[in-house]
């Protein structure tokens, strides 16, 4: 019943891809959330739509768009390859990029919700006390939205473990390279007699997802408590 060593490889790869996607997606997601919550600029609704696009588009389309943009002949992909020798298609890095794009809106939404809950009056108070924009953000805003960032990151991580369509389209299904958990399950179901492998991997996938959600909730509450904002 316990997964075999070669099956664990897909689990490890999934964890690594999801972790990387969150690590690289988090800073731009916080910035986007901040712009959407506090910014007053033309094109704000366009940015809002763009950020949420991966939620409503078929993942395969996202993967295809990435392929067109970051492929070796794509406008960005060709430059990356020529200047830095970086190739994203069919690589673990590419799988991470596809996962990051798909989970981006999840982080933005979580961060934005907690930003909306921060009293702008506190930022105004920090201003009158001599704090400039970056200072205010780092010492007041960021600590207060930390629970939102954390729960957004954990949710995105859990969702990233299972990203399928965008990854298989952009990074393909290469064992040890881009074959994450869901891709391995898919491959197993396509193989005669692979039902047992699929079942074992599906069980791992389920356990990881549940653990992720529980952790997100717990971490959010512990952090809120530490920040002195929980209901007394």
């Amino acid at each position: 019943m316990w997964p075999l060593p070669e099956e664990w490889q897909a689990v490890r790869l999934s964890l690594s891809v999801a972790l990387r996607s969150v690590a690289f997606g988090l800073p731009p997601a916080v910035l986007a959330a901040w712009l959407l919550a506090r910014g007053r600029f033309p094109g704000r609704s366009l940015l809002d739509a763009l950020v949420h696009l991966p939620l409503v588009m078929p993942p395969v389309v996202v993967g295809w768009l990435l392929l067109v943009t970051f492929g070796l002949r794509g406008p960005v992909g060709s430059l990356l390859n020529e200047w830095f020798g970086i190739r994203l298609v069919f690589t673990t890095a590419g799988a991470s990029l596809a996962t990051a794009v798909m989970s981006f809106p999840l982080i933005v939404r979580a961060v934005r919700l907690s930003l909306d809950a921060v009293d702008p009056g506190l930022e105004a108070a920090a201003r009158t006390l001599g704090a400039g924009p970056l200072d205010r953000f780092v010492t007041v805003t960021l600590p207060l939205i930390a629970p939102g960032i954390l729960s957004g990151a954990i949710t995105a991580f859990a969702a990233g473990l299972g990203e399928f369509g965008a990854v298989i389209t952009f990074a393909s299904n290469i064992p040890g390279e881009t074959q994450t958990l869901p891709l391995a399950i898919y491959a197993a179901t396509q193989t005669p007699g692979g039902e047992a492998v699929a079942a074992r991997l599906a069980a791992v996938s389920l356990a990881l997802a549940v653990a992720g959600l529980l952790l997100a909730d717990l971490a959010g509450r512990r952090l809120s408590l530490a920040l002195g904002r929980a209901a007394r």
Binding site: G121, A124, A125, R127, T128, L129, G130, L227, R229
Partner: peptide, 20 residues
């Protein structure tokens, strides 16, 4: 001058202490 350079200390009605 932006508020952060005016050096006007403000006591707000709702205190606005940093909760964290």
């Amino acid at each position: 001058l932006p508020p952060e350079r005016r050096r006007c200390g403000v006591v707000f009605q709702d205190a606005r202490l940093f909760p964290h």
